[in-house]
């Protein structure tokens, strides 16, 4: 090995060491603030519930068994915990619909922004972030004021003579979806915009020159090129929607639980912390599966265009 090569190698090694040292503070914070609490949740899920909340230090698997199986209250037979399963299914379903709706609304929005002149794009992006200035709780209560029985929509429609009596909009799945789409829309628009900004619009013109219809241009050129943005946006919306707590409890009227509300119940009135911990980890596992799906797809997309 030549001397020059050795010097370069030593430098590279020093470089690696410096990077590790410099990222130490961040790594330590992640370790303490993320891994620590997570570890507690994992440990708690294997303990026995205390009589008034909290846990007793006797290891048991009952927290985990209760996630999926339940002993019938009345005839003691063991069966699938269909209360939990239906709440899981409901949460996944509502989150999927939210993701699709935000994509349908967010895609044209992001496209619109990306096709504005350079100097006005900043302004449009800025407008997208305005809802973040206000607390989530306040925005959710604002929606409640609009759709309640004596709210804005019903009052106007009755004044106009279009409704005979107030239409029940609050406390329905439609209300939950409206709230979630509104809350998570910016999380879809921003990554979509990041992808579209890099889009070479000359490719679209080339497509039109070759007699492609607008739909063909969308399907064969735009969508494949902004696919990473679509996937990133969908993940960013789907994951928090799955654990949503505030929106379903305010707009859904607390009648039908989502996962977040089910977990909260175990730590509060249910007094079953191990079950709550096991449910939280189950939720995390679902999210991890979704993320793995994302990583695989993102790699495919990168390979084709990279």
């Amino acid at each position: 090995m030549s001397e020059a090569a050795e010097v370069i190698e030593a430098e590279a090694r020093r470089d690696v060491r410096n990077r590790w040292l410099l990222s130490m503070p961040a790594l330590l914070i992640i370790l303490l603030a993320a891994a620590g609490p997570l570890l507690i949740v994992v440990v708690y899920s294997f303990l026995t519930p205390g009589p008034y909340g909290d846990v007793q230090w006797q290891p048991t698997l009952s927290g985990w068994v209760n996630v999926f199986l339940e002993r019938d209250i009345f005839d003691e037979t063991l069966s699938l915990a269909d209360a939990h399963v239906s709440i899981f299914m409901r949460s996944v379903w509502l989150s999927l619909v939210t993701t699709v709706l935000t994509l349908l609304v967010g895609f044209p929005t992001a496209y619109f922004i990306a096709t504005r002149p350079d100097n006005s794009r900043e302004l449009w992006l800025f407008l997208i972030t305005i809802p973040f200035w206000t607390n989530l709780l306040i925005r959710t209560f604002a929606i409640l004021q609009i759709i309640r029985n004596e709210g804005l929509i019903n009052t106007i429609m009755i004044k106009l003579g279009l409704f005979a009596s107030p239409v029940q909009m609050l406390f329905t799945d439609g209300a939950i979806l409206t709230g979630m789409v509104y809350v998570y829309l910016p999380l879809m628009v921003l990554p979509l915009y990041a992808s579209m900004e890099k889009l070479d619009f000359r490719l679209l013109e080339a497509g039109y020159d070759l007699y492609a219809t607008p739909f063909q241009v969308l399907r064969r050129i735009i969508v494949p090129l902004v696919k990473p943005g679509i996937i990133a946006g969908s993940i960013l919306v789907f994951i928090p929607a799955l654990g949503a707590y505030v929106t379903p409890s305010i707009l859904g009227g607390g009648k039908n639980l989502m996962l977040g509300n089910l977990i909260e119940l175990q730590f509060g009135q249910g007094r079953n912390w191990p079950l709550g911990a096991a449910l939280s980890i189950t939720l995390m596992l679902i999210v991890m599966v979704a993320l793995l799906f994302y990583v695989r797809n993102a790699k495919g997309a990168g390979g084709r265009h990279g």
């Binding site: 009589p51 339940e70 209250i73 269909d82 209360a83 939990h84 239906s86 709440i87 009648k255 039908n256 639980l257 509300n261 089910l262 119940l265 009135q269 249910g270 007094r271 079953n272």
Partner: peptide, 17 residues
Amino acid sequence: PPEVQELYTKIWTELQK
């Protein structure tokens, strides 16, 4: 008593599904 509370919680969860 805790065992009654546990039954109450089970009924409650079933009600909320």
